[in-house]
Simulated assay, not measured.
Amino acid sequence: MAYQHIYGPVNSRRLGKSLGVDLLGAKICSFNCVYCERGRTDQLTVERKEYVPTEELTAELSSFLADRPELNYISFSGCGEPLLHKQFGQISAYLQENFPQYKQALLTNSSLITAEILTELKNLDLIVPSLDAVSESTFKKINRPYKNIKIEQIIENLAKAKQELAAEMWLEIFLLPGINDHQEELELFKKAVKTIKPDKIQLNSLARPGAEKWLEKMSRSRLEEIADFLGAKVEIVADY
Results as ranks from 00 to 15, higher is better:
M169F: 06
S12I: 14
T41E: 02
R68V: 00
T54C: 15
N204G: 08
A207V: 12
K191W: 13
E168K: 15
Q96F: 12
A238N: 07
L19E: 02
H5Y: 11
P177A: 08
L188Y: 00
K194N: 10
T45E: 10
L230A: 06
L175R: 07
T195H: 11
V10A: 13
E168N: 12
L230W: 09
G80H: 01
A59W: 13
S30G: 09
A105I: 12
Q163A: 12
E50N: 10
L19P: 01
E70G: 00
H5L: 11
H5Q: 11
R220E: 03
I154W: 03
W170T: 01
A26W: 10
L24V: 02
S219Q: 08
L71Q: 07
D228P: 02
V128P: 00
E185L: 10
P129I: 00
K162C: 09
K17V: 07
E47P: 13
W170M: 02
A26K: 14
N157Y: 02
L44W: 09
N11I: 13
T138G: 06
A26E: 15
G25V: 15
C79D: 14
E164W: 11
L24C: 10
S110D: 02
G231E: 05
N72R: 10
F88P: 01
A2H: 14
D199E: 07
G8F: 13
A115I: 13
L84E: 08
K197Q: 15
K160R: 14
L44I: 15
Y51R: 11
E152Q: 15
L230K: 08
K194F: 04
A161M: 05
